[in-house]
Design a protein around this nucleic acid. Structure first.
Length: 924
RNA sequence: GCGCAUGUGGCGUAAUUGGUAGCCGCGCCAGACUUAGGAUCUGGUGUUUCACGACGUGGGGGUUCGAGUCCCUCCAUGCGCACCA
């Protein structure tokens, strides 16, 4: 009766399914705990051993919380809309729905083998009509809302219409077109269409023209977080800036709350940092400079944004972005040719080139801007280093205080004004705020730090500037010119977007065989006239981006079958925030920000009772591959062992890690691996072919992928689970190393032998009363497992298990009372074995339904302890002391000790440091 | 360049609060049982030294009776951001 993990795991997995052991219900009489994994995109590649790391951690934590008496919600689902399935369909002719379903099924099979405690009755798939009905519904709520900056809340657009008709928009600056101002009378005089266009500029989900990231290869626009270094995140295709009509989410209105909300949640510092940087809040001023130019008449101003209004007397030039609207108006005829040439150059550079090589370029426009305080005329330049999308797309150049401005001035020989005295050395700019201002008119003698406020006050007085907060974050592009996503529940009639009534949701995605793009950069849905034309208008043919469905999925799990609401208030009030969210760092600025924003909007609109979705976020590390390398002597079919390769001119090739035992290559398998290697010869060292190794990403390309199925087949799911945890802290990146798994496997076999005599094939469990030593070993282990698990230190918990098993094994403890509690404590980490042991002990039902074993502290209490006694930190002797001795008693005992007296030579110590349970130190 | 994180045996790692550094596992060494072992079990294993001892947590400095832990500084690695005015 050896430890037959294959039979045991199969048996219990079937039993769990049959008895719906993991089904949970809303039950207000029980405390709840919500453990969530970032749901996967079901790709066709299948899982490697790195993927389940976070799932295993969350599974252990969920089971542990359940043993501790919580009603645990631990669901799983699929982010099943998205680009790759559509690309795959175009390349292979398999409809996205079909390939997605197949991938999900593979995925599920792999997951099931690991023995997770997901409540699959709550599974969601974002591409299900029953799910995306509510994605569309939430979109309509966002479309039907605006962000009231006065109340800092998402509010109904109907309320805004009422405000407009009674008071115009004086109190509510238009977030789209800031110059738009109208009175109540003017509002009433606008046509219906004009009114709708204005409202559109206030909506939280809105449609507008704007610069977007257009990816030609993917045939769609992308959000900023989907573009990395000028190329698409998916596929690495070039991305260009393009003006298009697109849907957006007005996430910028939530910027402040997205930053301040981080104080209320438990995310890692680096994660908070990333989000804060992405949002990029900065404080400064907007200043109007009067423009003078040969071609221009009065009244034109150049609006710049600066975070350093205190440096205004140091302005030596202005720079506007090449795309700035004033470029053409202010350029003088003398500079026209130079400007045209420069603009042509800028247009010829792709976004990618621009980012890759940062050259100092630019040209003078011929125009001047007037410094409002000293009347200096300042040349206005164009340069690509100024970004059109940030601030006003124009800056004031202060070379002595800004590195980039300094380089620019030097490059173009613009004279530099020094306003910071000795702080500026003439060689490098100095961005200090500590300098006392010079050459700065009315600011002379004032420290820079204090001057900003004075300048702003003066500007406001003069009506040519004001305090301004800016964000790096842009509104999020929300439409995609693709097929495999949620259709927008919008109909366009005479240029006005009409929301579909709720009763017509879901708006089903029609089946399409042909996924070619539609005309004029529209998506494939534009090719389907009888779908597109509807009710006297045309449907929106774009679809929603991948992050639409994932922005709220954690809510749907709470109430997955509800057909009359995305999630009932009853369910969301009970399950509330996600207590623990586990996933990778790659979603730091995409999914995490969007879902936080959606939660805030739904909260404002009264659909939720909380406005931060995730109470605690843990980012699991990535598991890398440990590749194996072989060395082929150039031009031959001979391979040289790693230790001898330096004597040859050899090329490095990857060998499949599955053909290598440790570092020793299975040459037979290698020869059979690829036709190329047929008849290969090997130059061996000590009779073995030793491979080289390298740590790199786990990828098919490097033949270093380890499939969890293989590991589970060979060692069992329980061993796999515990080994993944044993590898190191969950949050740390680490390489996979199959070798060490034996140790964990041995542990489980050792546990098995506490219960069963393998040779004689009988159960060893006895009813004898445990000894104090046995209780102590058990309780020490249980107490520490609990602590380790609660503080997410799963690797030390596994070590603790091993120590416990070693101790009980040494004590030959086969006693039922001890083993019962042992089995329960194992239920989170090795659930299959725990169930089997539970059954061996003659218990009914699932071990998961028993409470976490109470620790009887009296067995852990030590009455006396041997203390090292040190003089000035140096250990001199040891003393056995009663643990409940007072400090005074300790001192007396120590001083009475002969060895101590000898060392002290009759003198009294200055201080006696008594470190509880650790040591006693005498300071002399 | 800026920001954040991390540096401990041959390897993965451990070390409540500053309190005997190296738990647990891998690997390695020795042994037991075996026809056999890539099975199981026992013991050993930071460096150095015959030994007593000395040294030892990336380098240097500091605080302290006492530092892997706190402070300063330098170095290395990883991640994120990268013309955001």
């Amino acid at each position: 009766m050896e430890y037959n993990f294959r039979a045991i795991e199969k048996k219990w997995q079937e039993s769990w399914t049959r008895n719906s052991v993991y089904k949970v219900n809303t039950d207000p009489s029980l405390p709840k705990y919500y453990v969530l994994d970032m749901f996967p995109y079901p790709s066709g590649a299948g899982l490697h051993v790195g993927h389940p790391l976070g799932y295993i951690a969350s599974d252990i934590f969920s089971r542990h919380k359940r043993l501790k008496g919580f009603n645990v919600l631990h669901p799983m689902g699929y982010d099943s809309f998205g680009l790759p399935a559509e690309q795959y369909a175009i390349e292979h002719g398999i409809p996205p729905a079909v390939s997605t379903a197949k991938n999900i099924s593979t995925f599920r099979q792999q997951l099931d083998k690991i023995g997770f405690c997901y409540d699959w009755s709550r599974e969601v798939q974002t591409s299900d009509a029953g799910y995306y009905k509510w994605t569309q519904w939430i979109f309509l709520q966002l479309f039907g809302s605006w962000y009231n900056r006065k109340t800092q809340k998402t509010e109904s657009i109907d309320g805004l219409e009422k405000i407009f008709s009674t008071a115009g928009n004086a109190a509510h600056e238009c977030p789209g077109d800031r110059k738009l101002v109208f009175s109540a009378e003017e509002w009433s005089a606008y046509s219906y269409k004009e009114q709708q266009e204005i409202l559109m500029q206030y909506r939280v989900a809105y449609c507008g023209y704007g610069e977007v990231n257009w990816c030609e290869a993917l045939g769609t626009v992308l959000a900023n977080d989907e573009v990395i270094n000028g190329v698409s995140e998916r596929g690495g295709f070039p991305v260009v800036r393009k003006k298009l009509r697109q849907w957006y989410l007005r996430i910028t209105e939530y910027a402040d709350r997205l930053v301040s909300g981080l104080d209320t949640v438990d995310f890692s510092e680096s994660m908070k940092e990333m989000q804060t940087n992405w949002i990029g809040k900065s404080y400064g001023a907007e200043i109007d400079f009067k423009l003078v130019s040969g071609e221009l008449k009065d009244g034109h101003v150049l609006k710049v944004y600066t975070t350093r209004p205190d440096t205004i007397f140091g302005v030596d030039f202005m720079v506007i972005a090449p795309e700035h609207e004033l470029v053409h108006q202010i350029t003088t005829s003398g500079q026209q040719a130079a400007v045209d040439e420069y603009l042509a150059y800028v247009n010829s550079r792709s976004e990618r080139e621009r980012m890759a090589e940062k050259k100092i370029t630019g040209t003078f426009t011929g125009a001047y801007a007037v410094n409002p305080f000293d009347g200096r005329e300042i040349p206005v330049w164009i340069s690509e280093y100024v970004l059109a999308g940030y601030g006003t797309g124009a800056i004031m150049g202060v070379p002595c205080g800004d590195e980039r401005d300094h380089k620019f001035a030097n490059y173009f020989n613009i004279p530099i004004t020094n306003i910071i005295g000795s702080y500026y050395d003439g060689v490098e700019a100095n961005a200090t705020k500590d300098a006392m201002l010079e050459n700065s008119g009315f600011l002379n003698g004032i420290v820079m730090r204090d001057a900003g406020a004075i300048v702003i006050a003066r500007l406001e007085e003069m009506g040519i500037g004001q305090r301004r907060v800016n964000y790096k974050m842009r509104d999020a592009a929300f439409s995609r010119q693709r097929y495999w996503g949620e259709p927008f529940p919008i109909i366009w009639k005479d240029g006005v977007a009409i929301p579909l009534p709720e009763s017509e949701l879901p708006l089903m995605l029609p089946h399409l065989d042909d996924l070619r793009p539609g005309p004029e950069g529209e998506g494939p849905l534009a090719n389907v006239p009888n779908w597109k034309e509807h009710g006297g208008g045309v449907r929106e043919v774009n679809t929603m981006p991948g992050y639409a469905g994932s922005s709220w999925y954690f809510l749907r799990y709470m109430d997955p079958q509800n057909d009359s609401a995305f999630c009932s208030r009853e369910a969301s009030d009970y399950w509330n925030q996600v207590d623990l969210y586990i996933g990778g760092t790659e979603h730091a600025v995409g999914h995490l920000l969007y879902s936080r924003m959606w939660t805030k909007a739904l909260f404002d609109l009264g659909y939720l009772g909380f406005d931060e979705p995730y109470k605690r976020l843990v980012n699991q590390g990535k598991i890398g591959g440990d590749s194996r390398l072989v060395y082929r002597v150039r031009g031959t079919n001979t391979f040289v062992s790693a230790g001898l390769k330096d004597g040859y001119e050899a090329d490095e090739l990857h060998a499949d890690v599955n053909m290598v035992n440790g570092f020793e290559l299975d040459t037979e398998a290698f020869i059979k691996w690829k036709p190329d290697f047929d008849g290969a010869q090997f130059i061996l060292e000590n009779g073995k072919y030793i491979c080289g190794s390298r740590l790199e990403k786990m990828s098919k390309r490097y033949f270093n992928v380890v499939n969890p199925d293989d590991i589970v087949e060979r060692y069992g799911a329980d061993t796999f689970r515990m080994y993944e945890m044993f590898l190191g802290p969950v949050e740390q990146d680490k390489p996979w190393d199959t070798k060490g798994i034996e140790g964990v496997h041995r542990f489980l076999k050792k546990v098995w032998r506490l219960f069963v005599d393998e040779e004689k094939g009988k159960v060893l469990v006895t009813d004898a009363e445990p000894t104090a030593a046995e209780w102590k070993a058990l309780y020490r282990m249980i107490k520490k497992i609990d602590e380790d698990t609660e503080r997410f230190s799963f690797n030390t918990a596994v070590s603790t298990f091993m120590i416990g098993a070693n101790e009980l094994s040494d004590l030959k403890c086969h006693k039922k009372q001890v083993l019962e509690k042992f089995a329960v404590s194992l239920a989170a980490y090795a659930p299959h074995m725990a169930e089997e042991l539970w059954q061996i002990l003659g218990k009914e039902g699932s071990v998961l339904n028993s409470p976490w074993p109470a620790v009887e502290e009296q067995y852990l209490v030590e009455t006396s302890k041997v203390y090292p006694v040190a003089i000035n930190g140096k250990t001199r002797t040891e003393l056995s002391l009663s643990l409940d001795a007072t400090q005074h008693q300790v001192e007396e005992l120590v001083l009475a000790d002969q060895t101590v007296q000898k060392w002290l030579e009759g003198k009294a110590p200055k201080k006696v440091i008594y470190v509880k349970n650790k040591m006693i130190n005498l300071v002399v």
